[in-house]
Simulated assay, not measured.
Amino acid sequence: MWRMDNGQVAFLRELLASSETMAETRRFARALRSSARDDLLLLGAPDREDPWHLAAHLDEEARFVPSLKPTLVRWRPPPGAPPHLAVGLDRLAAARRGEALLVVSEAAPPTLLERVDDARRTGAVILTLDGGDRELADLAHEALTVRPDGPVSFEQAQHLVSATAGEDTGRRGLRDRLARFLDAVAGPQES
C-alpha cells in the first residue's frame, strides 16, 4: 500500500482546492471536529486491516484539535497488545451520547452494519468514510463517499480528511500549523 507524506497531501489539497471533492472533505472534517465531545471511536471493516494509519494521523492532529484524539476499536485485538491497541468491540458496545464513531470502510458487511446501528441507538454520532455503501451511509449522521472513479483513492481521502480536520478553521494554512507546532514544542517566541 502506497503511503503519502505531508508534502504530497498538501500538494493534493492544493490541486483539489476549489473542487467539489475538497468542499465535501471540508464539510466532513468540520463535522468530525465537532461531533466527539467525549471520545472519537474509529472502526474499520471486520475483514480488512484496522484503520491504524488514519488513527495515527488523527492522533497527530489532536495536538492542535483535541477532539480528534481517536480510540482505535479493533475487531480482534491481539493478546498482549499495548492498551491503546487492545480496545475491542466491548468499547463500541459502550458507546454513548457525546461520543462519535468514525467508520472507515469501502463496503459494509452485515456484522459491521449491526455494530454501527447499535452505536447509533445508544446515542453516538455516526460518521462514515465509505465507498458508496448505501446501507452504511444511511446509518450515518455525516458521510463522505469516495467513488472508485473519483479524483482520489480511498487512502488519499483518509489523508485529506485527517489533514483538513486538523485545521482550526478553513483559513489556516501550513505556516500557521507549523508555528503552532513550534510553539507547542519550544514555547512561544519572546519578542
Score class of each variant (00 low, 15 high):
188 P>G: 11
32 L>P: 00
17 A>K: 14
72 L>M: 11
35 S>I: 05
56 A>V: 12
147 R>V: 06
162 S>C: 04
126 I>E: 02
92 L>G: 06
101 L>K: 03
44 G>F: 01
121 R>A: 14
102 L>G: 03
144 L>K: 06
184 A>S: 13
7 G>T: 12
6 N>H: 13
144 L>G: 05
95 A>P: 04
95 A>M: 10
97 R>I: 07
191 S>M: 02
129 L>E: 09
49 E>M: 10
64 F>R: 12
57 H>M: 15
185 V>H: 01
140 A>K: 01
125 V>R: 15
160 L>A: 03
50 D>I: 01
164 T>P: 04
80 G>R: 00
83 P>K: 04
74 R>P: 05
186 A>S: 08
176 D>T: 13
99 E>D: 11
25 T>I: 14
108 A>D: 01
76 R>M: 08
173 G>A: 11
99 E>F: 00
31 A>Y: 05
107 A>G: 07
102 L>A: 02
55 A>K: 00
158 Q>W: 00
183 D>L: 07
51 P>S: 07
23 A>Y: 05
77 P>I: 03
145 T>M: 07
6 N>Y: 11
8 Q>G: 06
123 G>M: 06
94 A>K: 12
42 L>F: 02
110 P>R: 15
122 T>Q: 13
108 A>T: 05
126 I>V: 13
165 A>Q: 02
22 M>W: 10
52 W>C: 06
41 L>M: 14
85 L>K: 04
111 T>D: 15
188 P>I: 11
167 E>K: 15
176 D>W: 13
9 V>C: 05
112 L>H: 07
69 K>Q: 15
71 T>Q: 12
174 L>F: 12
99 E>K: 00
134 R>K: 12
102 L>H: 00
41 L>R: 07
178 L>V: 15
152 V>Q: 08
33 R>S: 03
30 R>F: 09
47 D>T: 15
125 V>E: 09
109 P>W: 02
170 G>E: 13
76 R>N: 11
